[in-house]
Amino acid sequence: MLQPEQEIIYFREEQEISRITSQSAICSELENYLLNEQPRLKPGEKLRIPLPQNDFQYTNTILRVEAEESHLVCYTQNLTYTIRYVNLDLKKLRGHLPELMVLKE
């Protein structure tokens, strides 16, 4: 799925917590999530953090999403998660979604 030198790296409050590389053995369902669903994450949804051996952990509900050139920054009530897409075209993966999305009260 990921080509060599492509990576998806997860940070919680600037600390790296998970990393998917071309060497990571992941199932087709997770592959689909990483490339098609996660870049289009919207406020009100929960982010899935991949764990080793096809496991994953949900975050709390995302309240705000900010998309930068190669980063997706997701805010829950208490924590900030940053997803860094290395050598992946985040803009293309996100399609026409706005750069800033906030959960409406």
Binding site: R48, L51, D55, F56, Q57, Y58
Partner: peptide, 8 residues
Amino acid sequence: GRSSGARE
């Protein structure tokens, strides 16, 4: 039961 994904 260890992760939310595994519980799901």
